[in-house]
Amino acid sequence: MTPATLLVTVFFFVPALILFILSLTDLASSNFSEPWHFIGLLNYQRMFSDRFFPKILGNTIRYVTLTLIFFNVGLALLLALLTSYINRRAGFFFRMLWLLPRITPSVVYIVMWRRMVQQAPFGIINQFLGWFGLSQQPHLLNEHPWLFVILANGFVGASFGMLIFSSAIESIPKDLFTAAKVDGASTLQIIRDITLPMLRWPLLFVTSYQTLSLLVSFEYILLLTNGGPGLFTTEVWALTSYKRALSTYFGTNQWGYGAAWGLVLVVIAITASVIYLRVFRFDDLVQEPKIDVL
């Protein structure tokens, strides 16, 4: 057995199997002292017939898609391109700066966001708006919860792609850019015709990796809105799974039911990965070159 197989087995297949078995039981803190039972697919039935299931599914799709497109890939690519066209040192410094939120503890980072969006004398954004005559603004988080959920996640998420993309741009041979300039290409044409096509591999990597990490991430949402305001407004799949399985509120842990949510998320993630590999034609990317003589 190769090391890779061993690692995947121990850290993926075995946990997934345990998760699956767990999802077939009625294990919960309410009946913890009693013997637990296999209840078949009852947890899944309950999940799919949940009144808020469509809402949570929609939220998850919205959260992952918007954050991914606008920030984790979109903004990341934009930042990488911009920082590679400015002075090398300035670009390096800017990228370092952008990494700060990532190394800030989640709680501190979210507390900063919460301070920013509060009402007028406390909230920083509203103070600024006040200078422009917009003094009586409501609590921004309650008004636009999705905007701030995506902003808070996106600002951190973009730094990963930014690093990957800028190092990929950096590794494109300089001669190619010189050749394109001599061939008559403008900067935008060079980006369109040379830089972006050569970023296909990092684009695939960042898109799939970030999709998966967004699918399972919930801590910023938990800290920022806790799925609110109101009922399930910003509640995503992973957050539901966490709340059902692990969040204790007078002994309401439902490990079996939470596991069902978790397992379906695993299936969604695998499906997404397969789709990405197809869309980016992964086979082409790793194809061996054919060389023959003159």
Binding site: L176, T178, A179, K181, V182, D183, S186, P197, M198
Partner: peptide, 30 residues
Amino acid sequence: VPPKDRNIGMVFQSYALYPHMTVFQNIGYP
């Protein structure tokens, strides 16, 4: 005058062919 307006052709030691383009696309790019 920027390179694109100098009407020059250039050949490199590394060839500097666009790896994602075919021979046709490479030659036809200008």
